[in-house]
Write a protein that binds this DNA or RNA. Sequence first.
DNA 1: ATACAAAAAAATTTCGAAATTCTTGACTTT
DNA 2: AAAGTCAAGAATTTCGAAATTTTTTTGTAT
Lengths: 244, 244
Amino acid sequence: MTNATAEIAPGRKTEAKTLAAQVYEKLREDIVAGHLEPGSKLKLEQLLSKYSVGMSPLREALSRLVGDMLVTSQGQRGFRVAPLSLTELEDIARTRSFLETEALSLSVQKGDEEWLETVEQSYRALAQNEEELDASNGEPPSDLVSRWEESNRQFHAALLSACGSVWLLRLNSILNQQMERYRRLSLRHSRGHRDIAGEHYAIYKAVKDRKILKACELIEQHLDLTTEEVRRALLQNEEEAAEA
Amino acid sequence: MTNATAEIAPGRKTEAKTLAAQVYEKLREDIVAGHLEPGSKLKLEQLLSKYSVGMSPLREALSRLVGDMLVTSQGQRGFRVAPLSLTELEDIARTRSFLETEALSLSVQKGDEEWLETVEQSYRALAQNEEELDASNGEPPSDLVSRWEESNRQFHAALLSACGSVWLLRLNSILNQQMERYRRLSLRHSRGHRDIAGEHYAIYKAVKDRKILKACELIEQHLDLTTEEVRRALLQNEEEAAEA
DNA sequence: ATACAAAAAAATTTCGAAATTCTTGACTTT
DNA sequence: AAAGTCAAGAATTTCGAAATTTTTTTGTAT
């Protein structure tokens, strides 16, 4: 065990990472990113070398991913990446929309001025990112896209952060993680024009003005548009697979 | 490995159970039942002998329970049973109510005659159980209580089964599991009189008559009354602990 | 008595091999 | 050709010991 370093030991502010926790994180990222094929058998011997880890930490990580619903296990037959399907996409999208609008509604009702300040800051960071994306010609550089994704994630988290329900946020984040698998899968397709920046601004404005119904309506539309993009891409995927 | 038996091998209709899966199930039950103290450190050496299992299957089971949010882990310092708190109880109760009323609403809208037949059967089994409970003098035998709990669970599952959302049911069952920990903790206290059978009948009747709003209102009240019982018992627990 | 350092003991995590189960391919029977 | 049986190889699961980390105890200095 080599990962508890000298800088960490005094005061122990940062969590020591076991090998199992490290490989869990890598596996989780790879599943969400689609690098491990949905539905595919996870061959343990291959994963041992791919992730430079032993059997016990690997099985621990996979077991935890079973609890996260990103992996399925079958006794004596090992583990598989959880499958994806259009039916499930619709279910996740509806359920996420249902939860996220509730969380937003509660947030707008309960959030104090400090919260609103946080929302404003995250909106500004996002808006700046979106301007840079707009200004980039052709295909934007991947680090710019990554930064946009992070600031988008933070804007949405800030919006919901005053909802007062740890569990609502947990469940919503489970659904977001599932949804992200679909979104990543859809990135291989060019998308139609969509004014995401405008959508974000409208949501931010409604929240700033404390218009609960409006905000919920807008975020629902925002989520629905994302789902529509993903759905279209997945359908294209299926058509291309049928032609091959 | 001894648990794949000869009866199972032909056709393989039933899942082969690894040791890890078996100890996972036992640990899960013991945590939900409160046999393992909320917040307590899970000492691996003790668990090895308690559950007659080796270190690898044990750690796999615990890792999965981390994913289930019944156990917390801290790198290099092992695992703990997830804590309970009054604040969390309220959060879980609200969130569960929110999800379960939605699932019921969808179920009543979408459920066909076959579904309604299933609901009716489960209601009849529950009602019979409740009559037997009523007829038993003093403290009812524990097998009767267990049977009531199972038929109660099945009634609720039947009610929601036509909602058309795998994910809504999954999330709701996560919350039910969490809530069950609190309910079990509250069983050590006698409870005030409550007409649970009447509540079940009213819900069943509203569902049978396809009165969505009424059904949702009733199930919300039903869940709230359960929460109130649990809350009162937990407050009593705290008072008793303060006196000791 | 308190604080610090070092050693010992306990606990946790991981390793690598052994045990067990599943899958595949070869062969035989119908 | 299809179905069944068996053995070999591959994959999965578990074991028990070793390695590592944390906690506790002991000893020393102030």
